[in-house]
């Protein structure tokens, strides 16, 4: 299972797939929890020749906690596919720890932090959304037209420019090489046939 947990190469220009992910990253940053965005791709279905037919890249890897997190803030009826993928991942990689964060979890998190106004904006949106979705009265820069990447859009509405959430940036204090090695070690440990404990 050498392909298990292949580190993903994020090319310039990639952004968070969903605005809720940017918000989640901001929360992790706030509490100083190291994270990486979609660092690993796990094959979950092969054809008879061993070619990968389907794979799954959980949204976040928290290296210090050795935990993968998949956010799904879509309507509950649309999450069946993700549930299946997570179930399959758990079957294939039983040592791997993954938490599926549903819309209700995200909603509760936002409620807890007094950000309930964001819930209706973030939940159920498919992919990236425009800056106007984040325009909240009283928030600095909320009316400014910003760059197109979601991280920058959120930055305009909810924080200073130097706090931009960019998945390409490092939010782990280790070097890029050290982080990659950590991911590979974790992936190897999670692989079904691994002898690592």
């Amino acid at each position: 299972m050498s392909e298990a947990g292949t580190p993903r190469d994020h090319k310039a220009g990639n952004a968070f797939a969903h605005a809720s992910e940017a918000e989640f990253a901001r929360i992790l940053d706030f509490y100083q929890v190291a994270w990486e965005y979609e660092p690993q791709v796990f094959p979950i279905l092969w054809d008879l020749d061993g070619n990968v037919l389907e794979s799954f890249a959980p949204d976040f890897f928290l290296p210090d906690l050795e935990l993968l997190i998949e956010l799904t803030t879509l309507q509950q009826r649309l999450v069946r596919k993700k549930n299946r993928k997570v179930r399959r991942l758990r079957e294939l990689y039983p040592n791997l720890r993954i938490k599926l964060f549903y819309a209700r979890d995200f909603r509760a998190l936002m409620l807890k932090y007094g950000r309930s106004a964001l819930v209706s904006e973030l939940s159920g949106t498919l992919g990236q959304v425009g800056p106007r979705h984040y325009a909240e009265p009283g928030l600095e820069g909320s009316s400014a037209a910003g760059p197109t990447a979601v991280g920058r859009q959120l930055d305009l509405s909810t924080g200073p420019a130097d706090a931009a959430i960019d998945p390409r940036a490092s939010h782990d204090r280790r070097s890029r090489g050290a982080r990659r090695r950590a991911v590979r070690r974790a992936a190897a440990a999670y692989a079904p046939n691994s002898t690592a404990t």
């Binding site: 706030f30 100083q32 950000r115 820069g141 924080g159």
Partner: peptide, 11 residues
Amino acid sequence: YGGTATESSGL
């Protein structure tokens, strides 16, 4: 966490 601009450090 409040996600507002008043959190200057974001931490």
